[in-house]
Design a protein around this nucleic acid. Sequence first.
DNA 1: CCATATTGTAAAACAAACTTTACATTCTAA
DNA 2: TTAGAATGTAAAGTTTGTTTTACAATATGG
Lengths: 66, 66
Amino acid sequence: MKNRLKVERAEQSLSQADLADRIGVSRQTINSIEAGRYVPSTILALKLAQVFGKPVEYIFMLEETD
Amino acid sequence: MKNRLKVERAEQSLSQADLADRIGVSRQTINSIEAGRYVPSTILALKLAQVFGKPVEYIFMLEETD
DNA sequence: CCATATTGTAAAACAAACTTTACATTCTAA
DNA sequence: TTAGAATGTAAAGTTTGTTTTACAATATGG
């Protein structure tokens, strides 16, 4: 699964730490999701989408391998 | 987190097993998600939303406690 | 009513998410 | 050019998702 976190974060000038604080997770969680090291829970995805004011589907996209 | 899986499934006359097959998980995974016993991964949420042709946000909704 | 499909659970085992700590690297602004 | 902020990553540990197996309860169609 791919995601647009880094881009969305850049558009809002939010650091990984800022974003992490906003949704109540650790900075490493954000970093790891951006790096594709793991797939977040749906709760996280909904919160992230909410922060950016965009649909979950716009921020996270399935790949063939999923 | 709440979800509309049971309702969507009913509208399409899909059994838990059918749905599980469609997205490649076990029946108990579907059952447990419907029962609120756990929160699926974002990959699962995207696949479920895809099966029902509706946005993730329509099928899964955050609660205060999330 | 009876057979069969569907659903609800539960336990054990494994995989993956997430936290905390820690440190090295890269960016950025003064 | 140097200090501080931001990023990348890693290891160990905890929590949570997911599978498999299994069985009981409930629904449904003939």
